[in-house]
Write a protein that binds this DNA or RNA. Structure first.
Lengths: 328, 328
DNA sequence: CTGAAAGCGCTTACAG
DNA sequence: CTGAAAGCGCTTACAG
C-alpha cells in the first residue's frame, strides 16, 4: 500500500505538500498539483484513515445483519434502518447470513472489522447464535426475542400473531389446518408462529398437526407438497411467511387444487405483492419498515446516550384477503 | 470520544496496558483486566482505527448505491455484489437514492465518507447525475450505460429487450399496445425500454403511443389507469418493470377487466413472484444477481489490478408466461 | 507556495 | 506482569 511518503518521493516534494494537494487544502502550485496527483495515481494511493490532530474520525457506521436482502421483509426493515441512520449521519453496512448459523458468525466478524458504532442483528437463533461473545459494540436484535447476551430488541409478538391468524382460519370453519414452514433452525420467528398455531388449535380442542418444514433453496419455486397434502388432506394451510405462502399456492395449483376453492392459504408479513395479486393474500401484516426505524432509533439512543437496553414490541394487524374461504 | 490515555488514567495504569487488555494480546493480570474493562465501559470507549506498526488497515469496503433495496431487482443485484465482495474480503456499504437525483448525490457523499475502495452505482441518469466529480475511487455503473465520466459499466441491452418483448406481443396479434412506465427522469432503463417499444412498433408500421408515466409512491398499489385505458383502449400493456406490471394487473382488475382475457400484460425483470402467480407473468428476464456479481468482479479487477474500464453487457431472455393472450 | 517538525491515537518490541 | 519509548501514516500550525 502506497504511503504519502512514497508519493512525496515520486513527486519530488515533501510529505506535507502531498497531504495538502490530496486534500485540496492550503495553497499549491498547478505544477505541484499535477505532479502529486500523477504520482498518487501511478502508485494507486488509497488514504489510510488518519487519527491526526483535529481530524474528525471518519463518519460512523452501523452494521446490519439480515438473513437475506432479497426477502422483501428484510429489505423493508433495511430501508427503515437506512433511512433513520442516514438522518443521523451514520452509514449502514450490511451482511447476509443466508439463514446459515455458521455463515452468520462469519458475517458478523466481517462487520466488526469495520469497527461499527453498533450492530442491528436478525439472527437465526438468538439463544444458540455462534456470534462471538468478545467485546461487541452496542447491539439491537431485530425480530429476535432478547436474550441475556443481547438485551435490546425490537420484535413483534410472533406467537400471538400465529395464534390470531389460526383463530381467524378456525373461525372461517376450517379444522384440518396444516402449518408449512421455513426451517425452524434458521428462523425462530417461524417457530414462534408455529407455537401460536398449536396454541390456537389446542384451545379449540383440535390436535395440531406436525409442521411441514421446507428448505429455502434460492426461493420457493419448486416446492413439493404432494406427500403432505395426501397425508393430511388439509382444507387450509398457514405458511410461516408470505413468500412461502405464494410458493404454497403455486404448488397447490400444480396439484390441480384451487385457492381458496379447494384449499385456503394464509401467510405472515403483509408484503405488498400479496395485496396486488388475485385472490389477494390473507396475512398477518408486520410493520417491517417501522421495526427497522425503531431498531435504528434504539441503537442510536443506546450508543449515544448510554440508554438502557430494552425490548420494544410493535403491533401486527390481520389483513383479510381472499385466500381464506368461509366454509359452511 | 474517550482515548486509551483517558482509560489508562481512570484504570490507574499505562496506555500500553490498556491497549493490550482491550486487544486481548500479551499478558495481563486478572485484576488489571477487570479494571481496564470497567474503565473502558464507563467511558464508552470506541477504538479509533490505528495506523500503527504492523496493524493492517481496517479491512476494505466498497460502496453501493441503488435506487431502492425494496425493489427485488436491486435486492438481487445487491445480493450478488455482497456475495462476490465477501469472497474477496470486502465489506459492502449501501445507500439508496429513492429515485431522487438530489438524494442520490447526498447518498454518494455519505458513502465517500467511509473511504471505500470503490463504488458500484445505479444512477437515476448517468449523463446528468449530480454526483460530484471530485476524486472518486474506481467506479462501476450497474444498469446505466457508460458515459465519459464513468467508463466502466455492467448493463443489459434494455433497448433491445424493449424491442423484443414488443415484437412478442405484436406477434401474438396485438396492435393497440400501451407502454406504462416509471418516471423516465429517475430511470434511464425505463426510457430505453420505451425506445425499444417505439422501434418495434414503427418497424411493424404502427404508430407508437405516448408512454404513461407513473409516479412511484411507496409502491404501485393505488395506480390509476382509468383515463389512459378509456383514451387508448389498449389490448395489451407493457410495463417498464415487473413490479409495475403487477400494479397494472391489479388496476385493470379494479376496472373490471380480466388479464389476459380483456387486456394482456407484460413486464421486464423476471422477478420470482411473476412465475409463482397465476396467470404467470410474461416478462423479459434480466440476470440481476449475475449483474451484481459481474459488477463486483469488475470493480475488484479495476481497483486491484488497475485494469482498463470496460462495458460488459449481459443477456436477457424472454419468459413466456400466461399474461399475454394470443389473439385471432 | 513549500518544508521541517510536533502531534494525533494507537501498537509493539524492549527493559525491568 | 507492566511501563517508557519508538514508530505507524497522517495533518497542521509555524517558519521561510
Amino acid at each position: 500500500m502506497a504511503t504519502l511518503q512514497q508519493i512525496a518521493f515520486q513527486a519530488g516534494c515533501s510529505l506535507a505538500t502531498v497531504s495538502r494537494v490530496l486534500n485540496g487544502e492550503g495553497p499549491a502550485s498547478d505544477e505541484m498539483v499535477r505532479r502529486v496527483r500523477r504520482a498518487a495515481a501511478e502508485l494507486g494511493y488509497r488514504p489510510a484513515t488518519s487519527t491526526a490532530r483535529g481530524t474528525s474520525r471518519s463518519s460512523p457506521v452501523v452494521g446490519v445483519l439480515v438473513p437475506s436482502v432479497t426477502n422483501p421483509v428484510f429489505a423493508a426493515s433495511l430501508a427503515g434502518i437506512q433511512h433513520r441512520m442516514h438522518a443521523a449521519g451514520h452509514g449502514v453496512l450490511i451482511a447476509q447470513s443466508n439463514y446459515d448459523p455458521s455463515l452468520e458468525a462469519k458475517a458478523v466478524s466481517a462487520l466488526l472489522e469495520q469497527r461499527p458504532t453498533g450492530l442491528i442483528l436478525t439472527l437465526c437463533n438468538a439463544q444458540t447464535s455462534e456470534v462471538l461473545s468478545a467485546a461487541l459494540p452496542p447491539t439491537v436484535l431485530l425480530n429476535n426475542l432478547p436474550v441475556p447476551r443481547f438485551a435490546a430488541a425490537v420484535t413483534v409478538d410472533n406467537h400471538r400473531a400465529g395464534r390470531e391468524i389460526t383463530r381467524h382460519v378456525l373461525q372461517s370453519g376450517h379444522a384440518r389446518i396444516l402449518y408449512v414452514s421455513g426451517h425452524f433452525a434458521s428462523s425462530d420467528r417461524a417457530r414462534l408462529r408455529y407455537e401460536g398455531y398449536r396454541a390456537a388449535m389446542k384451545e379449540t380442542g383440535l390436535a395440531p398437526l406436525e409442521s411441514v418444514e421446507i428448505r429455502f433453496v434460492d426461493g420457493y419455486e419448486h416446492l413439493e407438497l404432494t406427500t403432505a397434502i395426501e397425508r393430511h388432506r388439509p382444507t387450509a394451510i398457514i405458511a410461516s411467511n408470505d413468500l412461502l405462502a405464494l410458493g404454497v399456492i403455486s404448488a397447490l395449483r400444480r396439484e390441480g387444487l384451487s385457492v381458496p376453492g379447494d384449499v385456503s392459504v394464509a401467510g405472515f408479513d403483509g408484503i405488498a405483492i400479496g395485496r396486488l395479486m388475485s385472490p389477494s393474500l390473507t396475512t398477518m401484516t408486520m410493520p417491517d419498515g417501522d421495526m427497522g426505524v425503531a431498531a435504528a432509533a434504539m441503537l442510536l439512543d443506546i450508543a449515544e446516550n448510554a440508554s438502557q437496553s430494552r425490548h420494544l414490541r410493535l403491533g401486527h394487524r390481520l389483513y383479510v384477503g381472499e385466500t381464506v374461504q368461509q366454509l359452511r
